[in-house]
Design a binder for these strands. Structure first.
Length: 994
RNA sequence: GGGCGCGUAGCUCAGCGGUAGAGCACUACGUUGACAUCGUAGUGGUCACAGGUUCGAUCCCUGUCGCGCCCACCA
């Protein structure tokens, strides 16, 4: 059946993908071949960065996955034992958010109404129904992952439905328990970033600092007992600029609502202005007068005397800096807010939050506080910067004062998911003591066990790890790995305890319930405890002699029973490399594929994920998780903006695949994957590469029409060709194969793409196909030429397959019966020995001659249909040889009808080639003026080039210092140029005579 | 405030010590038996600017000017 005129991507892609899957082509180890020495195939493994279970394929994934697929297909064809491990991340916050929204939309009970177990069931239901759409989308892209090994970061968790079995939960729990037992995980009451929308702690990486328009208010904190002091301000020279008696200390703040929790006012020890009042008390100027707290004025290095008033209110429970100051100085912390970021209404804070502010949202409270202070005259007043020439009462020259409020750009923390302002909150959380496990992760990159490419990212990696902070791993969510810790009362002397509400509580850490029971038995004996944990309530220890019932609230302390919190999603995805391979079981896959070969990822998750995988794998199994990390750039829109839904500039890869085909999308991303630079995607470019696929397709049709595929015998080795043209293209194939391998070896994906583009289009289609036309008509050489065309096109398909899998596989199947699918075809290894340098030289000469003639014809406006004779004016032996052997194709491609020898006839165009001169007699055809212009222009260019060469060669220092071959090359070029210039001049003289 | 990257043809980008490249766009010509998703030939560049190193700099160094990104607790 003859080939269709065009490749029908939409039809073929699904069919080909199904064929690969049915053939098990993606399975780990598929197409693995022993090495030439008989030893087992070398493993090559890549872990897919697990997309969120809520995710759909966006351009960043398409890029990321294309690069991985290229590496995987390339290695698979080279006979490596290849694994591309797919999977999904349970994505705690994101998923819980999606499911809660679903519940709201379908008017079902809320999360809290239905309770934890029921809600988690709902999430699993949702996952089964609509999670992981990205898998189907990846198939459209052509990603050749081993789907039979699909992993999930929550597999095997309690409550997981059938089909979600797996080791991941066990692995996560085991790691938590092990790290806890090694003292690398601890619980503590710390100030953490709190997301008031999701009501959970988040890590500092999940906080985005954004500049917003804010205000800084200046308020007076009156000194206790109406005391006053002399306030003196001096300039840099020590001259007094202000001297007045004050009965207050001025404070600047951007967050007046936190004043209620102030514990002190701090000034710098060297600040002479406040020296008279250090140690005295001042009053927080908010709330009913009789309830106002007095706080001390202290000194600390933290305040900057040049900023604001130089005095800082210290609110340890609501600011990270202040917390440090408070800790240093023994200042108490006063938590003011509840989990939603509203001012607390509960009894514990009675004396902190006055009645009128209780229950107010933090921002409403801010407005109220500002209004109240201002009304009371406790705002610092400044002259109105825009004085009125006349005031309301008609007073001329009156300059009113106004409350001192600076409009100010301030950095404000936002939750990266919730987009609400993050609140520093004092809560009990679990932390990984990263400082203790970070060093191996730093060393591994320093000593090259893991290589990060491009190199510049190593710096970023080092900087972050060297300044690493404790990692808060507990989240107040329900969807995730519940922390395997139970709390109970303690018998004296144990160290794993903490204080809460006057109770000393022991933390039990266990991988599962039976292990916990064992622990408790060791601890209390057989009779002393109850154990009861049904997934809903955890009251097992209530009767152990405690008085009262402890109620857990995030940030508020302790409960009896299992910790309700779950682990940060990144804690589990941090175990992705070993977890997907079956750890803690010592599976054969783990032995074979770990450490993995390459991680391909965007720089945006170096901290979130890459660094943590390094730390965790090293801490848990003592090995690096991957040998190479290839960090690629971001995909942006054509204007260079980051694609985002809110900007509406998102290009959907699936739309592009629909329109241009997956191969075109893949090739575009590959061609633009230059290291270290963001790529701006334009559909024009994709269309161009779609055309490229079409070009290859039509070259194959050309072959078909010329019976190349009739009885074609696919061979790995090139045919033993005798024709120069055939020998030449075989050499070119060898060249491009080497280029592609070298490029991929170095992760220079764009180099591989452009080498292939230049070969397939620029060499094979532009020249070789044309060269073969006369040969195919010639009985003697037609056979070998057909074989060569077939072989060369096979090489195109093979070498392009990693980047353009669909069109190449389709051609592979259409053109000849094949022993294997292309996806499993053997990647060539032939080398430079296939380059026939004589053929190479000859074809380069032929191409140059044809181009010269074409150029001359075009510029003289010789009609396309008009064939011309050519005159060989002078030509050296190799030129004559080349002409003789290629006369047919030169005449065809340059549209020449005959050759004569002799002097250039009058009114002819001179064609200079390496080793000689031709003339195109064009008397009566050419425009003499135009030809003069053409020759002068060529001469001018030549003279300019030669000027440079002469200058250099006349410089004795150049001749002395430059490498021999550079000097030699310059000499040769100058000689060639001079010969050519002489000819041009002669021709010009002739024209002038005519 | 630190750190990183980028300014090369009209556009999007490669390149990187030895005479400036690609694709797209543009211009002219073309119904040549693979391909108009095409062909042939062209136009188009002080490689941001200023110094320095070098026989030689788009490339290395320093500074300046523009852009972009990452990290950072200035109340």
């Amino acid at each position: 059946m003859p080939m269709e005129k065009n490749f029908d991507a939409a039809e073929a892609e699904a069919r080909l993908y199904a064929m690969w899957e049915a053939a098990g082509a993606f399975k780990a180890g598929a197409n693995a071949r022993p090495k030439p020495d008989g030893s087992p195939a070398e493993p090559f493994s890549i872990m897919l960065p697990p997309p969120n279970v809520t995710g759909t394929l966006h351009m960043g994934h398409a890029f990321n996955h294309t690069l991985m697929d290229i590496l995987i297909r390339w290695h698979r064809m080279r006979g490596f034992d290849t694994l591309w491990q797919p999977g999904l991340d349970h994505a705690g916050i994101a998923t819980q958010m999606v499911v809660e929204r679903e519940l709201a939309l379908s008017q079902q009970p809320t999360r809290r109404e239905m309770g934890r177990a029921a809600f988690v069931d709902k999430v699993w239901e949702w996952k089964a129904k609509s999670g992981g759409q990205i898998v189907e989308q990846d198939k459209r892209l052509g990603a050749s992952m081993d789907w039979s090994r699909m992993a999930f970061t929550m597999s095997g968790a309690p409550g997981a439905p059938a089909g979600e079995e797996g080791n991941f939960h066990d692995a996560v729990i085991k790691v938590f328990v092990d790290l806890y037992n090694k003292g690398l995980i601890y619980r503590g009451k710390r100030l953490v970033n709190w997301d008031p929308h999701f009501e959970t702690a988040i890590s500092n990486l999940e906080v985005e600092q954004t500049e917003v328009n804010g205000h800084m208010w200046h308020f007076k904190y009156p000194l206790a007992g109406g005391e006053s002091y002399e306030y003196v301000e001096r300039d840099a020279d020590g001259q007094v600029t202000l001297r007045e008696v004050r009965d207050y200390i001025a404070i600047a703040t951007t967050r007046p609502e936190t004043m209620l929790g102030d514990g002190a006012v701090a000034v710098h020890p060297s600040d002479a202005r406040y020296a008279p009042i250090v140690g005295k008390l001042c009053e927080i100027p908010v709330g009913p007068k009789h309830q106002r707290r007095l706080i001390p004025i202290i000194t600390d290095e933290y305040p900057d005397p040049l900023f604001g008033s130089g005095a800082v209110k210290i609110t340890g429970a609501h600011d990270f800096n202040d917390c440090d100051v408070a800790m240093r100085n023994g200042i108490p912390l006063f938590p003011l807010m509840d989990t939603k970021g509203a001012m607390r209404a509960d009894a514990a804070t009675d004396n902190m939050v006055p009645q009128k502010y209780r229950g107010l949202d933090r921002f409403d409270c801010r407005r109220a506080v500002v209004a109240d202070i201002t009304a009371e005259g406790l705002a610092v007043m400044i002259p109105n910067p825009a004085p009125m020439p006349e005031d309301d009462a008609g007073r001329v020259g009156f300059q009113p004062t106004i409350p001192y409020v600076e409009a100010k750009k301030i950095m404000q923390p936002f939750g990266d998911r919730s987009k609400v302002v993050i609140e520093p909150m004092l809560t009990d959380q679990w932390f990984v003591d990263t400082a203790k496990i970070v060093q191996p992760a730093i060393d591994a990159v320093r000593n090259g066990d893991t290589v990060i490419l491009p190199e510049q990212h190593e710096k970023v990696y080092f900087h972050w790890l060297e300044n690493i902070e404790p990692w808060c791993i507990s989240r107040q969510l329900w969807w995730g790995h519940q922390i395997p810790v139970w709390y109970g009362p303690i018998k004296g002397g144990d160290t794993d305890t903490f204080e809460a509400f006057g109770l000393t509580v022991k933390v039990f850490c266990a991988a599962d319930e039976s292990q916990l029971i064992d622990q408790l038995k060791t601890y209390y004996g057989d009779e002393d405890f109850y154990f009861f944990a049904d997934g809903e309530s955890y009251r097992g220890f209530r009767d152990l002699g405690l008085s009262g019932e402890l109620v857990f609230e995030p940030g508020e302390g302790v409960h009896i029973g299992r910790d309700p919190d779950v682990l940060d999603t990144w804690f589990s995805s941090g175990l992705w490399p070993i977890g997907t391979l079956g750890w803690p079981e010592q599976t054969p896959e783990l032995k074979k594929y770990f450490p993995t070969s390459t991680l391909v990822t965007g720089f945006d998750i170096i901290f979130f994920w890459v660094a943590r995988m390094m730390m965790m794998q090293l801490a848990v199994v003592g090995q690096v998780p991957f040998k190479t990390v290839y960090v690629h750039a971001l995909v942006r829109d054509e204007k260079g903006k980051k694609m985002s839904k809110s900007l509406g500039n998102v290009l959907d890869p699936l739309d592009l695949i629909d329109e241009y085909g997956a191969d075109a999308v893949r090739f575009t991303l590959t061609a633009m994957a230059a290291m270290g630079r963001d790529l701006k995607l334009s559909t024009q470019r994709i269309a161009g590469y779609r055309n490229f696929a079409t070009k290859l397709w039509s070259a194959s049709r050309f072959a078909e029409m010329n019976l190349v595929w009739e009885g074609y015998q696919p061979q790995a080795a090139p045919p033993a060709a005798t024709q120069t043209v055939n020998r030449w293209i075989i050499g070119e194939a060898a060249r491009v194969r080497a280029e592609v391998d070298a490029a991929l070896e170095a992760y220079r994906f764009n180099d591989a793409a452009s080498a292939l583009y230049a070969f397939v289009w620029g060499k094979v289609c532009d020249w070789y196909v044309e060269f073969t036309k006369p040969l195919l008509a010639d009985g003697a050489s037609a056979g070998e030429t057909r074989a060569t065309i077939g072989w060369v096109l096979d090489q195109c398909m093979i070498l392009l397959h990693p980047i353009m899998p669909f069109v190449t596989e389709e051609l592979w199947g259409l053109t000849a019966p094949r022993a294997k699918l292309l996806i499993h075809a053997d990647w060539p290894t032939y080398g430079a020995d296939m380059i026939d340098s004589a053929a190479d030289r000859e074809m380069t000469w032929v191409i140059a001659l044809i181009e010269e003639v074409r150029s001359a014809r075009a510029q003289m406006h010789v009609p396309v249909g008009l064939k011309l004779p050519i005159v060989q004016v002078d030509l050296n032996a190799s030129g004559r040889d080349a002409w003789t052997r290629n006369a047919a194709l030169i005449q065809r491609l340059a549209r020449i009808d005959s050759l004569t020898e002799g002097a250039a006839p009058k009114g002819s165009i001179l064609i200079a080639v390496d080793g000689g001169t031709f003339a195109l007699p064009l008397e009566g055809v050419i425009d003499i003026g135009a030809e003069k212009t053409r020759l002068s222009k060529t001469l001018e260019k030549l003279e300019k080039d030669m000027g440079g060469l002469r200058g250099r060669l006349n410089n004795p220092k150049f001749v002395a210092a430059a490498p021999e071959e550079v000097v030699e090359e310059n000499r040769e070029n100058l000689a060639l140029g001079e010969a050519e210039a002489a000819k041009l001049k002669r021709a010009l003289a002739q024209l002038a005579a005519a």
